[in-house]
Design a protein around this nucleic acid. Structure first.
Length: 261
DNA sequence: AGAAAGCCTCGGCCGC
DNA sequence: TGCGGCCGAGGCTTTC
C-alpha cells in the first residue's frame, strides 16, 4: 500500500526511537528475504543505538551508531511503534491489526517495540541498504533532476507512466501517484517519454511537484483528484469523459479519454 | 474470481 | 551479424 507519502509518515513515526538502543531484533523468513537469514538480522541489530532516520523514495532508513537499517514496505506494510501506527488507517487490504501479520521488528532498552505489520509479506528488512540504485527523491525533485527523469537515450523510450514508476529514475512514485500526476498534467500515460513536447514536460513537472505537495497535505497517496473515477466505467471528475484503463508499466493505469493526450 | 498503492528476475528484441 | 542493455511480462504473496 505505501507510496512515498506513507513511507514519509513512517519515517516521522520512527523518529521517536532516536536515542534508543536495540536489545533484540527478529524477522520471519519473508522479511529477511534480502538477507542471508532471519538470524543475520537479529545478530546485526543487537546493541545498535538509533541516531536518526532518513528515507529515499519508498525506502526507510534507520541511522545508527553502526550499520544503517533499511525497511521496505511492499504493498501492505505498515510501521508501528507499540500500538501507534505511522498512518491513520489502511486504505488497501484489511483495516485491522493481527498479531499474525507481524513479520518482524526491533525491541528497545526502554521496552518499546518497532514493528513491521504486513499481511501480504512483501515488506523487507535490509542491512546497510544500497541507495545507489535509486533515483532522486520524489518529494524534493528539482527541475534539473526532473529533466534527467524524462531524458531518453535510445529510441522513443518507455511509456511515461512506466518511467515515472522506475525507481532508478525517480524514487518514490507508485501507481496511484503516477496516475494522479499524469491526470493533473493532462498527459496520456502511454506517451513515449522521448516524444513529450517541451510544453508537456513543463506541465508534467508542475503537476509532479503539485501532486506531492497537495496529497501530502491531504494525508495520503490515495487522496488524489482522479481517485473517484478509478474503477471500470468511471467518468473523469474534471470533464465527465469516460475513463480508460490498461496495464502500463506493469500496473493498472486509469486516465481520462479526453483531457489526457 | 481476479485484482491489488511493490519489487525482482527473466527473456525477447531493440538499436548501436 | 553481434551483443549489451532496455523494456515488458510474469512471479512472489495474501487478502478481500
Amino acid at each position: 500500500m505505501p507510496e512515498i507519502l506513507e513511507v514519509e509518515s513512517y519515517r516521522r513515526l520512527a523518529e521517536r526511537v532516536v536515542g534508543s538502543t536495540v536489545t533484540r531484533g527478529w524477522a520471519d523468513a519473508f522479511a529477511a528475504k534480502k538477507l542471508t537469514s532471519p538470524a543475520a538480522w537479529a545478530r546485526a541489530v543487537r546493541g545498535l543505538t538509533v541516531t536518526g532516520t532518513s528515507r529515499r523514495g519508498k525506502l526507510l532508513v534507520l541511522e545508527t551508531d553502526g550499520v544503517p537499517l533499511g525497511v521496505r514496505f511492499g504493498m501492505t506494510g505498515v510501521l508501528l511503534i507499540d500500538d501507534e501506527a505511522g498512518i491513520d488507517g489502511l486504505f488497501y487490504g484489511p483495516h485491522l491489526f493481527k498479531a499474525g501479520w507481524v513479520r518482524g521488528g526491533l525491541e528497545f532498552d526502554d521496552g518499546r517495540k518497532l514493528i513491521l505489520h504486513d499481511p501480504r509479506r512483501l515488506g523487507r528488512f535490509e542491512i546497510d541498504p544500497d541507495i545507489s540504485q535509486l533515483g532522486p527523491d520524489a518529494m524534493a525533485l528539482t527541475r534539473a533532476q526532473f529533466d534527467r527523469v524524462v531524458a531518453v537515450t535510445r529510441g522513443d523510450g518507455p511509456a511515461i507512466k512506466a518511467r515515472l514508476l522506475d525507481q532508478s529514475s525517480v524514487a518514490g512514485v507508485g501507481n496511484l501517484l503516477g496516475d494522479e500526476i499524469l491526470f493533473r498534467a493532462g498527459i496520456d500515460p502511454r506517451t513515449p517519454t522521448g516524444l513529450l513536447s517541451a510544453d508537456q514536460r513543463k506541465r508534467l513537472y508542475r503537476a509532479f511537484t503539485q501532486t506531492m505537495r497537495t496529497l501530502e497535505s491531504r494525508g495520503g497517496s490515495h487522496l488524489g483528484d482522479h481517485m473517484d473515477a478509478r474503477f471500470p466505467g468511471g467518468f473523469c471528475p474534471r470533464d465527465g469523459s469516460a475513463m480508460r484503463s490498461a496495464t502500463i508499466g506493469g500496473r493498472t493505469t486509469y486516465w481520462c479519454s479526453t483531457h489526457q493526450r
